[in-house]
Write a protein that binds this DNA or RNA. Structure first.
Lengths: 228, 228
DNA sequence: GTTAAAATAGCACAGGCGTGTTAGCATGTG
DNA sequence: CACATGCTAACACGCCTGTGCTATTTTAAC
């Protein structure tokens, strides 16, 4: 049996995923055509179709590859150890890693938004990809709130901040972050990065856990990276 | 000079706008093609092109017509006079008119979302349409907070709730509403209408103006419909 | 070198799109 | 009735799309 050259299919597919991401940023996921992506990657359509039988397979892979790329880019930033000058500032700096406050994060949000819009009009049978990311954002909100929770005396350890309360605040923070990101993206120039950052801090001031906020706080290290 | 039959152009355009809305709900604004909309309306492409010279004119009109339709549908509901059992409930019922909590409002949000996505990738030179709607939502939040503000004694009229504070809370509420709507739409079945309604009330409880919330409150009638 | 399989490149077809153009229909006025 | 003009329908062209198919090139094993 003769074995001709073997090409690392996964490597080629990943290489094509990067080209697809450029296409998505330019034209959206609907612009991911067989011919277009092949041209962007410098391939011929015949070559591309050796790795993806049809457009549907291509788009399904691109959706998965895009979300994987986003996870690899965002998660390390969010979980990076940090020291903050206050509780509000600590939570804010964590959450801001997920907001489109600069070109890099705008690009990430545009990609994520494209995938969300795609899945809304093409409900996948094999389980949604974006719902997992939504849960991940929620868990990061929980982690942020827990990490920068004011250190409590052992006597009142469970009373003021039971887990149910933290999870409720995390859900509120998660929803607020979603809205803030959407406003920054949808009205460029109208809602600036500065006003967004101030709004975020205003919300954190209003939500109970940050109320007694004076002086520096350090994150509880063991829970800063535990969540996933 | 001979004048043949005269057709009410505006009426025909409006008739076509309704067909276009059906197309948008099915395929998004990118699916608004000359041929497709003509077929949906039961016209020939030649007829349609008597009212719109090219696709760009058609899409520009459809964007405007869609937002106008949305304003006509949503605004009366939001500004409808209502009596609530509490401050939180009063604000919540107003804000909920803008949330995709049932089929009708889901349709409205899908239309609005399609226009937003369209304008993000096709920045209009003649000023954004969706930004005006965003401002309108914000003003409705201000109006809701003012209308259901607990009635105060004249002596402390200006101290606890200066306008700057109300506007800040309105901005927070507006952002939260944006996020809540996005979550309901993007994760159907995962974030239900009930949990969304509860989340909204939790936020209103946490935000200062609703803190002293016990007993029934009536809206301050003169400010319930003033805002626009 | 020979060979067989993998990889690549490209053509061909059908279908949808925007749009320019043209022919036919309908109708208020003379 | 005749007619000029607004409306309607349809065709034609070029471009882009997915996809089936084939020819060519490359490469590892014999």
């Amino acid at each position: 049996m003769e074995v001709p050259r073997l090409v690392d299919h996964d490597r080629r597919r990943a290489e094509l995923g990067e080209a697809a991401i450029r296409v998505i940023l330019r034209e959206g996921l609907a612009g991911v055509t067989v011919r277009g992506v092949a041209a962007e990657a410098g391939w011929s359509t015949g070559s591309l179709r050796h790795y993806f039988r049809n457009q549907h397979e291509l788009q399904a892979y691109v959706v998965q590859a895009t979300t994987d790329t986003l996870r690899r880019r965002v998660l390390p930033r969010v979980q990076r150890p940090r020291t903050a000058s206050s509780v509000v500032e600590g939570i804010a700096t964590i959450v801001e890693e997920m907001l489109p406050l600069d070109a890099e994060r705008r690009e990430e949000y545009a990609l994520w938004s494209a995938v969300v819009a795609w899945e809304r009009q093409h409900p996948p049978e094999g389980g949604s990809v974006t719902w997992n990311d939504q849960r991940a954002v929620y868990r990061q909100c929980v982690a942020a709130l827990r990490a920068y929770e004011p250190v409590r005396e052992p006597s009142q350890a469970t009373l003021p901040h039971p887990d149910a309360q933290v999870e409720l605040w995390a859900a509120l923070l998660h929803t607020f972050v979603d809205g803030l990101a959407a406003q920054i993206m949808n009205t460029p120039g109208e809602v600036s990065a500065d006003t967004a950052a101030q709004l975020l801090r205003s919300l954190l001031q209003a939500v109970p856990p940050a109320r007694p906020d004076q002086g520096a706080h350090r994150p509880r290290a063991e829970s800063a990276t535990r969540a996933h």
